[in-house]
């Protein structure tokens, strides 16, 4: 696979483009509802002083979510890479 990592691994001040949102039930649904859908660009703004949760910036607003939930979100580096990976899926 290409350079995909989970959102909690993205360094502060760096961006990622969402590939998929894992997990299940209420939490996954809430993540999707809040706009964390595939293809969305997310900037990791900061980590809370106690090491968790994290603050991200997407769709022109600030959102906070826990590391354990961020782990379930796979991102790649750029939108071009996102398109490449997605088109790869469809060819299969």
């Amino acid at each position: 696979m290409q350079n995909t990592i989970s959102l909690d691994k993205v360094k502060i001040g760096h961006k990622g483009v969402i590939l998929s949102v894992g997990g299940e039930g209420a939490i996954r649904r809430r993540l999707l509802d809040m706009g964390l859908t595939p293809g969305t660009e997310v900037l990791v703004r900061k980590i809370a002083p106690l090491g968790d949760p994290i603050e991200v910036f997407l769709r022109s607003y600030e959102l906070t979510l826990r590391q354990e939930d961020a782990k379930k979100i796979q991102v790649c580096e750029t939108i071009e890479e996102y398109r490449r990976i997605k088109s790869g899926f469809h060819k299969k």
């Binding site: 939490i27 993540l31 809040m34 600030e62 906070t64």
Partner: peptide, 12 residues
């Protein structure tokens, strides 16, 4: 049961 999601907006 299901924990309450902590996915919260930080409003301006």
């Amino acid at each position: 049961g299901n924990p309450v999601p902590f996915v919260m907006e930080l409003p301006s």
